[in-house]
Design a protein around this nucleic acid. Sequence first.
DNA 1: TACCGGTACTTAGCAAGACCGAATACTGAA
DNA 2: TTCAGTATTCGGTCTTGCTAAGTACCGGTA
Lengths: 123, 123
Amino acid sequence: MGKQTTEMLKGTLEGIVLAILARQPAYGYEITARLRDQGFSDIAEGTIYALLVRIEQRGLVDVEKVPSEKGPPRKVYALNATGGEYLDEFWRTWSFLAERIEQLHRDIRPTHDTHDTDEAEGA
Amino acid sequence: MGKQTTEMLKGTLEGIVLAILARQPAYGYEITARLRDQGFSDIAEGTIYALLVRIEQRGLVDVEKVPSEKGPPRKVYALNATGGEYLDEFWRTWSFLAERIEQLHRDIRPTHDTHDTDEAEGA
DNA sequence: TACCGGTACTTAGCAAGACCGAATACTGAA
DNA sequence: TTCAGTATTCGGTCTTGCTAAGTACCGGTA
């Protein structure tokens, strides 16, 4: 994908990750891999880690360090109550935006123009 | 709305405006007013004007200056061929993202966890 | 005349979030 | 010893929306 995806992820990626954590706790590397599996083929790893730091600092998740057999310890993130509320608000915001955008998508064909801005057709 | 809306608009507002222009040419003040009517009650005027400058510089729209009876001349923007293609790509990107997010929304309830990351439950 | 409100656009500086690239750290296999 | 895979961190860049202020043009009113 391209630049449009990058920009669109701003504001939605956070909700996506929170939604994943709502299903079950997970750590950064795992989340990145799962996103790639789901088609987000080019989400940068650094992006996810930065996002996790942010949501931790805002108190939306609880963190536990769990030793790994294959490398450095994992930081396992779990959605807490605050995070749950924040996620609910995310869904409300998303629905609001998605509805309006879908409406625009449907309205591709102009009907016949009956809005009430003045019709100054000079020059 | 709050900060979530602001962040979510990044990447989508451009498509929204292009979609409006796809229906019919319009000028900044008018677009702002129309967005407010449609529920985007707190989109800053400056944001729209800045966005219009950007899409003009990228050659997605054609611009015509039209005198107004009530104030300074209007800059009327019309989607051109390049803009049309760009808008198509926007819809593809949007659909991709929206489908995955809706999927997450549906999957709020954990099924039973059958992903293939290793199950190291040590500590 | 002088002022105000509505119309219409511009600009500078800020904040947030995704990107890239590199570094760090731990493990097991070639 | 080196390399690949696992796992996290960090610094700097770019894009984009917001704030806030300013410019400009018009009509109505005191």
